[in-house]
Design a protein around this nucleic acid. Structure first.
Lengths: 219, 219
DNA sequence: AATTATTTTTAGATTTACCTAAAAATAATT
DNA sequence: AATTATTTTTAGGTAAATCTAAAAATAATT
């Protein structure tokens, strides 16, 4: 009835790479899952027979309705557990990803529903990402990329573009986290770096790469 | 560095069958794990090379110091999660075992410590079993078997001898749970059945098998 | 369009945890 | 003590998920 952890991880990876629509290539998947293209091909054939995705040789994959449903259920669990870890157990928002990667594979549906109720049906996880409800629907947050924020508009950091430890380390060093208030003071077209000012602090510049990894909402 | 879920389940099963001291046979383990003797032999060889147990052909197994430490860590997680499910998420005490069987394999040490702190360092799980602390020490509860309770001594149900759904179903039907107050009215030597009376209820008889599966503490 | 480069698939192996069937060791019974 | 019964181990095989190396298909470039 259920699916293996490995199968679930493939479904989740395809879901993330698909982003809305489009098709996902074997190599993209191999990179995302830190495995080899040959292994991906094998698994895609298997998941096709299980009707979780549509796949034709050399043509890439896309999730079926069933596949999307499963992906949303996994994402729901991941984000609810992240919320729990930060909100209830007082973890730092930058140290919960790995643990949630394990917890998202716990199968009990009743557990998920009770956890959701206990947490008060949160709509966004600690990284600012929306939590799908029990029907797979999620709220749309008007996240905008920091690089697109106009100069002198106050905003609040609401999400990060990746969970990499390198990024989280850099953000910690710069004292930037979810909820941090900031505004842009100048944009430098030479290297697309931007000068930002955190609330009650001096201004400093950050790289284009960092700015692109941060999402903010206007206030 | 870590161990597979299967390996952990073997260690846990050996720990439970060992109960205090003694050696565990291949067939006992096979029965406990719903697998075959040949599979057990294979795994024992593997776990021996990992120094989790001492094992000589045809002589049975016993856990090493390392093995016991691991077993206690797993039991700790299992019971803390059970406590969490009942106390925090409002699960019934008779429906948490299966879920905890999955949760006990989540590896994060920090998660266990934070969960323990959040729950207020509970000493016993919802079935009345003691929860090992972070050093593997557990409180000793003076559980006595219901079959050994003297007639007319008021007592309180504090634990059950198994997690089988058959037992839990029967207890539910008879309205017996952890914390139920009762006393023995008569003992029948013919079939070792006993007549018990729950607080504020009429007396009824229960079988020897059921009495042996219940633990109580004197009040 | 032909060649070169890249991507993807196939073929054949490996590892983990399991199995069945037969052989070996231990335990029980006459 | 000898035989029978039981337990345990060995031997050889299967399924899941992975790998490397080679072949086939697609894409890019001259």
């Amino acid at each position: 009835m259920g699916f293996s952890i490995t199968e679930e991880n493939y479904i989740k990876a395809i879901f993330h790479l698909q982003q809305g629509e489009g098709t996902v290539s074997t190599n993209e998947l191999a990179a995302e899952l830190h495995t080899k293209a040959a292994s991906v091909t094998d698994m895609l054939k298997k998941l096709k027979t299980k009707k979780l995705l549509s796949y034709e040789k050399y043509k890439g994959v896309r999730l079926s309705g069933e596949g999307k449903k499963l992906a949303l259920a996994i994402v729901r669990k991941h984000r609810l557990w992240e919320y729990f870890l930060v909100d209830t157990l007082q973890f730092g928002w930058d140290e919960v990803h790995e643990v949630a990667e394990e917890l998202e594979h716990i199968s009990s549906k009743k557990l998920v529903e009770k956890l959701d109720a206990f947490l008060g049906y949160p709509k966004f996880d600690p990284h600012g990402d929306p939590i799908p409800d029990s029907h797979g629907k999620m709220a749309v947050q008007q996240h905008i990329n920091l690089i697109d924020l106009p100069v002198n508009k106050p905003a609040e950091v609401s999400g990060v573009g990746s969970q990499s430890t390198e990024l989280l380390e850099l953000l910690k060093h710069k004292h930037i986290g979810i909820g941090t208030r900031l505004e842009i003071k100048r944009k430098f077209s030479f290297d697309n770096s931007i000068e930002i000012k955190l609330k009650n602090q001096n201004a400093f510049t950050i790289s284009q790469q960092l700015a692109q990894a941060l999402f903010v909402k206007l206030m």
